[in-house]
């Protein structure tokens, strides 16, 4: 039999633990738009606007020198087709690099009358505040910068692959040329020069946006602070920094 004191004590600590997830991402949210001198990069994806053209994936591969023909990519676009009977047909052939030009999810033609809803979801590295991939690196080859971007030191990586397994989002892969772990770094060479990432540059529909969440005048900060946004796999406690608009519950 648990005492009243014990119940309150353990109950409070259990509540605090379950609250950890919200407090860590809440910390950034609280500081967002504070005009802090520290930069914190964040990403915003509006799934309503994505047409599934795949030009972001193409631009990313060219910009970041990931071989076109290799089945490996820093960003990708997923297609979800949900039928009236509840069946979900989702795919991302070649990361969607050639665009979605046919109604053939997983090679099946789904008649228009059967489709309840359908949409595209662009994905990329979330540059988590608490990156699981960094924590498992045994040699210090992958790390978080002061402005929140997770980078990989190609000269230091031993290619053990722990980080690829640790990422809950499947954002990491093995670079076929450099033979080290590779990941999206939100075009660190571009954003640090005040440019947009290559995928944002290539998106015609404004489905992607990158910005400094600490800057109150950044359009990205304004949207995140005022509109309804969500994150992927928040329950993992990694505090992802890629915000989504219009995310369906079955997108993980």
């Amino acid at each position: 039999m648990i005492s009243r004191r014990g119940f309150l004590k353990y109950g409070a600590s259990a509540l605090a633990t379950s609250g950890l997830i919200t407090t860590t991402s809440g910390k950034i949210f609280a500081a967002a738009g504070s005009g802090s001198k520290d930069t914190r990069w964040a990403f915003l994806i509006d799934t309503h606007k994505c047409t599934g053209c795949g030009l972001c994936v193409k631009a990313c591969k060219l910009e970041n020198e990931v071989p076109m023909e290799a089945n490996a990519t820093r960003t990708w676009v997923e297609r979800y087709v949900i039928k009236h009977d509840g069946e979900v047909v989702a795919d991302s052939p070649h990361a969607g690099i050639d665009g979605y030009t046919r109604n053939d999810p997983q090679g099946r033609e789904i008649p228009e009358s059967d489709i309840a809803k359908s949409y595209f979801v662009p994905k990329l590295c979330n540059q988590c505040e608490k990156p699981a991939c960094v924590q498992v690196c045994p040699v210090g080859a992958t790390y978080q910068t002061a402005d929140g971007v997770v980078l990989v030191d190609r000269t230091w990586c031993i290619g053990c692959g722990y980080c690829i397994m640790a990422c809950p989002y499947g954002a990491r892969f093995f670079h076929p040329v450099f033979r080290v772990a590779e990941k999206c770094n939100w075009c660190y060479h571009r954003i640090t020069k005040g440019m947009d990432t290559a995928c944002v540059e290539a998106c015609s529909f404004g489905a992607r946006m990158v910005g400094n969440i600490m800057d109150p005048n950044d359009p990205l900060t304004k949207i995140i602070k005022t509109e309804r946004v969500s994150l992927l796999k928040e329950e993992y406690g990694t505090s992802p920094m890629a915000y989504y608009i219009g995310l369906d519950t079955l997108v993980r």
Partner: peptide
């Protein structure tokens, strides 16, 4: 390419 994907861009 016309796709019957209501809700997508």
């Amino acid at each position: 390419a016309k796709l019957p994907y209501k809700g997508s861009g």
